[in-house]
Structures are given as structure tokens and as C-alpha cells.
């Protein structure tokens, strides 16, 4: 009798600990997912990339050609239903990155130069944009 009672208690002990461990693992997973999601937010990427591309344009000179890797933006824009060829626009002296319908971040650059930006069609460079620079006549 005593041995039967003892076995039941050992079973409860094991189940309780397993549930405890599973809950802890679940908690850690939720934390990690939260961290990853925060780092790849659309607003954050728009802000960072618009500024970085503006700095690239500021440093550029006529006849230069730049290949810019925007694969990270492509993933987010695909999720939000924005075509990849529409995520980067250069109008006047402003760079605009748009990753969602209601989103979009603009940043001004001071280099007085003609900039043309278009999607790279080379299959080996999917997710790239090409920037070409020429002097303003």
C-alpha cells in the first residue's frame, strides 16, 4: 500500500516539474520573438535606410554607380503588399523609403546631383537597387 502511495507522489512530482520547465521555455521564446520583431520593424528600417541612402548620395560624385542591398526591406515590403520597385523613390533632393501603405520616411540630401534609382534586374542580385549619378546641366 505504502509503495503504491509513494509511486503516485513521484508521478505528480515529475508532471509538475515538466509543466514548470515548459512554461519557462515558453516565456523565454516569447521574449526572444519580441526582441527579433522589434529589430525588424518597418518604421525602424525605413528610418535607417532613408538616412543611409541619403548619406551615400551626399558622398557620391557624377558618373558613379552604386549597387545597394535592400533585401531586408524586400522581406518587409512583401509582407505589407508593397511592390519592391516602389520602395525607394528619389524626388528632388529627398530620399523616400516606403514599406507599408500608410508608412514612408523621407530624408533630405545636400548634394546637387542627378540621381536615378531603379531595381536591379540581374537574377544574381535580387533585392538590389542601382543608383546612377550624373551632373545637373
Amino acid at each position: 500500500m505504502n509503495s503504491f502511495k509513494g509511486k503516485n507522489k513521484r508521478g505528480e512530482f515529475l508532471v509538475e516539474n515538466i509543466i514548470f520547465i515548459v512554461l519557462n521555455i515558453l516565456f523565454l521564446m516569447i521574449l526572444v520573438l519580441f526582441l527579433i520583431k522589434q529589430g525588424s520593424g518597418a518604421v525602424l528600417l525605413e528610418d535607417a535606410y532613408s538616412k543611409n541612402i541619403a548619406l551615400l548620395i551626399d558622398s557620391a560624385r557624377p558618373t558613379m554607380k552604386m549597387y545597394v542591398n535592400l533585401q531586408d526591406l524586400k522581406e518587409v515590403s512583401d509582407k505589407n503588399g508593397i511592390d519592391f520597385s516602389d520602395i525607394l523613390k528619389i524626388e528632388g533632393n529627398d530620399v523616400t523609403i516606403k514599406l507599408s501603405e500608410k508608412g514612408g520616411t523621407k530624408y533630405h540630401f545636400f548634394n546637387d546631383i542627378n540621381v536615378t534609382a531603379y531595381k536591379d534586374t540581374d537574377p544574381g542580385r535580387e533585392g538590389f537597387y542601382i543608383l546612377t549619378f550624373s551632373k545637373i546641366k
Binding site: 528632388g92 533632393n93 529627398d94 545636400f110 548634394n111 546637387d112 545637373i136
Partner: peptide
């Protein structure tokens, strides 16, 4: 010097 400091 190819500079444009004004914002539209």
C-alpha cells in the same frame, strides 16, 4: 560646389 541646402 554642387551643393543644395534648401528644402522644398
Amino acid at each position: 560646389c554642387s551643393l543644395n541646402l534648401t528644402i522644398n
